[in-house]
Amino acid sequence: MSSIADNIRSVTRRIQKATKAAGRNDGSVRLLAVSKTRPPEDLREAYGAGQRDFGENYLQEALDKMAALEDLGDVDWHFIGPIQSNKTRPIAENFQWVHSVDRAKVARRLSEQRPDHLPPLNICLQVNVDEEDSKSGCNLRDLPELASTVSELPNLALRGLMAIPDPDQPEADLRTSFQALASALEALRRQPDAEGPLDTLSMGMSGDLELAIAEGSTWVRVGTALFGARAGSRNQPSGG
């Protein structure tokens, strides 16, 4: 059985190969290890193999892991799950990235509750590119208004967009979904009031990362290919 370290090396090679095939610069795509439901020992092993960015869906589980791994001082924690309004304070206080902001109320609370001694919280807006009823995310029509609101909040840094297209749809449709997100980000960059670097596309998982990279992804969210299949899942996926 492959170790987590072996899996990280394998996925890293896939990312490098896909980046080169897309004619993009080496290092322009980063690996986010989706560590939801994984014990702290798995994250520690991944850390030992050089992984520094971990994505969590469930707040209390994430906080418990942070406490167990507090000796690892250079980890960046990414919240990638649906956000309840009453859970924004601990997210604002403990994470470096949030990939799943889909409404202005949540964004305002994150900004208000971000401690002054911390740098701005890196934000990706979650877009429901396929307009699936079961998925979180704002629709493409409402995205410009939400982006404008978030860009004005003082303790947030609007970095880009995230989407979770249906991984089981035909490849052509999946490519279209990735292209739609990339086009939406480019449209935001052209807005006269655009703020922040807007340099991030969080899209692509274990089974489709090559396709996502070809269409411009800068963060691929990978869980299964690093840690193995989960026994079960709660709620919707945010990476896999």
Rank of each mutant, 00 (worst) to 15 (best):
N57Q: 03
V129I: 14
Y47W: 11
I8P: 11
D26F: 12
A46K: 06
A147W: 14
Q191H: 14
Q16P: 13
N86D: 04
V129F: 03
L118I: 12
A21N: 15
S100H: 14
R89V: 04
G27L: 11
I8Y: 07
S206Q: 14
V75W: 02
Q236G: 13
H78G: 04
D208V: 06
R114Q: 05
R44P: 00
S2H: 12
F79D: 02
A107E: 00
Q191R: 15
L198H: 12
A172L: 12
S28H: 02
A184G: 13
V106I: 15
L43Q: 02
P40I: 03
G216R: 03
S85Q: 06
P167G: 03
L59Y: 00
R89I: 00
R103S: 06
F227K: 01
V11C: 02
H78Y: 02
L174V: 15
A214V: 13
S148W: 02
N128P: 08
G81D: 13
R114M: 06
N25T: 15
S100R: 09
S238V: 15
D6Y: 11
P192D: 05
G228A: 01
Q169K: 13
D193V: 08
D142Q: 15
I15E: 04
L32C: 01
V129C: 02
E171W: 13
P197I: 10
H78E: 04
G50W: 00
F95W: 03
L153G: 03
E186Y: 07
L31G: 01
A172P: 05
P192F: 03
L226V: 11
Q51Y: 00
R114C: 08
L158T: 04
V106R: 07
T19K: 03
A180S: 09
P165M: 13
L32F: 02
K87M: 07
R103V: 03
V222T: 11
G81Q: 12
G137F: 01
S111P: 11
A33L: 00
S85H: 01
T12D: 04
L198K: 15
H78D: 05
S111L: 08
D64Q: 05
M162C: 14
D193R: 04
R234H: 12
D74W: 06
E210A: 15
V34H: 14
